[in-house]
C-alpha cells in the first residue's frame, strides 16, 4: 500500500484508504465515484507541485497533490 503520489503516470491502482482526506474533498470524490475500492489510473501531474489528474471508469478528476498524498492505494 502506497500513497497515490508514489504512482507513475499511466499506472493503475485500487484505492484502499480515503480516511486521511479532508471531508469536503472526500465528499466531492465520493460524488464523482472515487471511493474506497475504486480502480483509478494516474493520467498526469502538473509541474511545481501542481494537481494530479486521475481517471476512474472513464471519468477524469483533478485533485491537489497534498490530497493525493493522503490517499492510500494499491498498485495493480
Amino acid at each position: 500500500m502506497v500513497a497515490m503520489t508514489q504512482l507513475r503516470v499511466g499506472e493503475r491502482a485500487k484505492i484502499v484508504d480515503l480516511s486521511q482526506v479532508s471531508d469536503l474533498v472526500k465528499r466531492r470524490l465520493l460524488d464523482m465515484g472515487v471511493t474506497e475500492g475504486a480502480e483509478i489510473c494516474l493520467k498526469c501531474t502538473m509541474p511545481l507541485g501542481g494537481p494530479f489528474m486521475i481517471e476512474n471508469c472513464g471519468q477524469c478528476v483533478g485533485i491537489r497533490r497534498h490530497e493525493a498524498m493522503n490517499i492510500q492505494v494499491k498498485p495493480l
Binding site: 466531492r28 489528474m53 483533478g62
Partner: peptide, 9 residues
C-alpha cells in the same frame, strides 16, 4: 480557510 480543489474533467 483552507482552499479546496476537486474538478471534474
Amino acid at each position: 480557510e483552507t482552499s479546496v480543489f476537486v474538478v471534474e474533467l
